[in-house]
Design a protein around this nucleic acid. Sequence first.
RNA 1: GGGAGCUUAGCUCAGUUGGUAGAGCAUCUGCCUUACAAGCAGAGGGUCACAGGUUCGAGUCCUGUAGCUCCCACCA
Length: 796
Amino acid sequence: MLEKRYDFSSREEHWQEYWRENEIYKFNPEAEERYMIDTPPPTMSGNIHLGHIASYTQLDVIARHQRMLGKSVFFPFGYDNNGLPTERYVQKNSKLKMNEITRGQFIEKCYDAIDELKPIYREVFFRAGHSADFDETYSTITPRTQEISQRSFLDLYKKGEIERRNSASLWCPECRTTIAQSEIDTAELDSVMNYITFGIKDSEERLKIATTRPELLSACVCVFVHPEDEARAHLVGKTAISPLYNAEVPIIANPDVDREKGTGAVMCCTFGDEADAKWQKEYNLPILEAIAYNGKMTALAGEFEGLKVIEARKAIIEKLRETGILYDQTPLTHPVATHERCGTAIELLTKPQWFIKLLDHKDELYQAGLDCKWYPEHMQKRFLNWVDGLKWDWCISRQRFYGIPFPVWYCEDCGEVILADESDLPVDPSATQPKCACPKCGGTKFKPENDVMDTWATSSLTPQICTDMLTKKGLDDTYTPMNLRPCAHDNIRVWNFYTIAKSLLHFGKLPWKDVVIHGWGLSATGTKLSKSKSNGGTLGPVDTYKKYSADATRYWTSNASLGKDIYITEEEFKNGFKLMQKLWNASRFVLPFLEGYTPREIELLPMDCWIIGCYKQTFERFMSYMEKYEMGLALNELEQLFWNFCDNYIEIAKNRLYKPEVYGEHAKESAQYTSHTVLRGMLKLFSIYMPHIAEEIYQDAFAEFEACKSIHISKYLDLGKYTGNDVSAGNEVCEIVSKIRGYKSQKGLSLKEELKKVTITGAPQFVKDCVDDIRAVCNIVNLEFADGEKDVIIEE
RNA sequence: GGGAGCUUAGCUCAGUUGGUAGAGCAUCUGCCUUACAAGCAGAGGGUCACAGGUUCGAGUCCUGUAGCUCCCACCA
């Protein structure tokens, strides 16, 4: 018997523990049919919020759906605790500066932070009723993961896909590390265009040049003009003299120059922007470093040495003004590349870095984008677009403390790269030494590579890291391509892209077949929920579970459209809560009539056939939506059926169930069979969205009947193909009932009010066969049928 | 500048292959009905962004326009 009230707060926890103890969600690698998900490990960088719950719950709905199709579902859970986000979190919360403590101490701090955060993260997901295995989880910083990640490095190095190059790379002066193209944001910043003049050697002429980066004047290596620039044609081949520094630089004609921009003459520095870097390579120009890794000017800048870039810019402008070299200024706003993590304008600096070759593989990457199935489909374009615009190889060196080290030393004598032995992985080259002498020069002194790898170099291996929990084989492709990678739309060019790249480079195949793109959880005002910013006022996940239940929280998130952002509104939690109550109450009505009842096949009354037809129709639509990962639309279909069941079917069945002495035992049994079947079927469909209450009711009423330990490992109730005939006729009955209810409503009568006589005209045979049901549900003394136009005539 | 998506009821959104506009929320009216008042019944509410075109017929297909959102490019 179900209690009058469903006490979700205690029952939800009860079932969570039950599922865990009984290993309901355990993956069976031997299963005939498997469904494997490459779960995104949440980044451990602070407080977890409802946005996470939104996307992970959608994923859980998918996992549960696949499980109820009879597949064994691999739904791992992991923690992404490797790298910059965690590092920044630790720095911020402990108010530490990187240069004030040792690397070892800092790493300890990071591990401590992870230990504190892990249980919080686990709790939030576990209490949402997620069907992942929380007892065996992975993390992106464990020794085992480090081993896999380093092995990936060695493998790609040996394949010739990784190399160390000394070239321009994207540098964040705030984080003091190189970053990748994918980590760039663009910010619209105010700036000033400064018009200055260069001298010309052996000439009185001055050459006008515009620049937004006068602080790089000391690193000016060349001046370009357009080949068709007649006014300046005579200068090509001559030597320009930079102001203040009096450096002699060549004047070269270059078709890349945009004659409309600035003055039409460009100074090329090391490096003002990507064009500078390109030209440096193209003309083999000298590399002059005016900016140091800490974002301050070097000795090259002369009197401006030690100033930060922005300060130096102000100072040099002042100086240029004083000396009369600056002849004009115009304010402008322009887009500046910034580091997405900290918003600092990035610089291009030269430093030896490790690169994974991507530009050589653009075609394969593009093809991989075509080969994956994207949901929603148009997200594929974003991937292809990104591959198209790829300009940099993937720089994987990071000048940070906390991360996975490169398994690499350099020979102090000859500089040769010495790789760690695979059997020694994971290694920390700063703590150990190579086992043999340098193969090239026989040297025995080595210095370690002190950089660590980009976090994405590791998280791009999640298919290998998570399936390693099954195979213990590390970098292995036994289970790839997996079935599904879920991912937010902002991660298409990052996590998705790199995972595809690694899988292609290592194994020559896709990491997974399907990609589902989910939106962001947005606050009611439409701002993105973020771990680092607080969107004050919004509920936290655990508060929401407490106030509205986990099931209601899940309802909110699963009701979203594929790929679309979802807004947090308490309205939706309330709706979820109401649905839960309704499910409870409907079951509380039906189930007592099913005590001691065992279903057997009998001939069903027309309206019973009708609701079963409705169920079949819903079931088909539900399945086809879920096939496309459209869980929100599937849920809508289901809800429609459920309300129909409550408002129309139960009202009809009620009379037969209560009064078999009036309507007959057969009519009662027909209603019993039908409500048993349809409620059981609907519960299963609901169970992927609201697993707790579905389990509660299932255990009370159906678990024994199905001899199944949990609704979540039972199979959907497929009643066969919907043929389409019975539903429309039954709907007509509902319309007639609705008309009669409307009549009472308009007259201000109670619905139980007795009607003396009702005549239904133009009704088909099906409706006539339902005479008892209609009479009962509308409380009609005398119900008659007549020929003529379809109508309902009521006499009080 | 290149690409993608969106525009349907006051709000949030559905609308599969063209065939009389749908749901939830909100609003209004009525109803304590032996599951549920956190409920039930009923009602009002839309030139489907705009303009053309194809068609017997267009929210749906084609072309164009406008507005919003996102991705990419744009640092002289």
